[in-house]
Design a protein around this nucleic acid. Structure first.
Length: 272
DNA sequence: GCGGAATGAACAT
DNA sequence: TGTTCCTTCCGCA
């Protein structure tokens, strides 16, 4: 689940449960013991997300930086918090809630200024009000790298992952292998706008749904279906199945060690 | 019960 | 390009 929309939800949840309040912090697993000790007893001033990075600002101007990677997961609950189940890297407790973090790629304490360094190496985030698509365009329009690779590069665009990249390219009818510099500025604008809409909906719903109403199984007279990842999508993990729009066969290929999915009919070679 | 895959990215080579 | 981190879940015995 951890694409950018998930992390923005997590930030909102932290803000709601812990924002402006003193928090307790422990690391039952032990791998964040020193950091937890430094956090424990401080006021959590605010929670924020940039792309897939969660940032918890503390009263002493340091920040907890969490990146979930593929496996990382949060579970929230009330108080009293039960005995931690499994390997809990960080448990926060507030006035009425607790949050358990397991399996993150990153869980570290950043010194003041560390957040700026982090954000400087990230591209614009379609979910943020300060996200500037022009910044991404300056990278995209100058490279031969395929657009499908660029969309996964967090220094180009921060937030989209493997599902959103496949789905937005399908929805905009773009050939995934099209070099960035062959993409038109108009098409990039459409991709950015679509990402903003899709991901905002993902934040609201807590799942990734990308299928337009006229293409849902119901509208097409097929039995309703929800994918294993918890949403309704056009091409992601649907290799070998018929395209929901044209009936052609959805294809997959490995790109930079990730599986890319697309419909060669709706996204013909050179289209961009 | 086991093996593989998974919504990610840093690092080594 | 390959390795590693680290956890969960699914399909297959």
């Amino acid at each position: 689940m951890p694409e950018g929309h998930t992390v923005h939800r997590l930030a909102a949840e932290h803000q709601r449960m812990f924002g402006g309040r003193v928090v307790g912090a422990v690391s039952p697993q032990g791998r964040f013991a020193e950091g937890a000790a430094a956090v424990d007893g401080q006021v959590l001033e605010g929670a924020d997300a940039h792309g897939k990075h969660l940032l918890l600002r503390l009263a002493d101007e340091r920040s907890v930086h969490v990146h979930l990677g593929i496996y990382g997961k949060y579970v929230f609950g009330g108080l009293p918090a039960p005995e931690p189940v499994g390997v809990v890297r960080l448990r926060l407790t507030g006035e009425a809630h607790h949050a358990d973090l397991r399996g993150p790629n990153v869980c570290e304490l950043l010194e003041p200024g560390g957040v700026k360094l982090l954000r400087d190496r990230l591209g614009p985030d379609p979910l943020r009000a300060d996200g500037d698509p022009g910044r991404a365009w300056r990278r995209i329009s100058r490279t031969r790298t395929p657009i499908a690779v660029l969309l996964m590069d967090q220094s180009v665009v921060a937030g989209p992952g493997n599902i959103y990249r496949a789905e937005v390219l399908f929805r905009q009818g773009v050939d995934p292998r099209l070099p960035g510099r062959r993409l038109s500025a108009e098409r990039w604008g459409a991709i950015w706008d679509d990402l903003a809409v899709l991901m905002a909906e993902g934040v609201r719903a807590g799942r990734i749904d990308t299928v337009r109403p006229e293409h849902t199984p119901e509208a097409m007279g097929r039995p309703p279906r929800v994918d294993g990842h918890g949403g309704e999508v056009y091409v992601y993990r649907r290799a070998g199945q018929p395209c929901l729009v044209c009936g052609g066969v959805v294809r997959t290929v490995e790109v930079a060690s990730r599986n890319l999915f697309w419909c060669p009919v709706c996204q013909p070679p050179g289209r961009g």
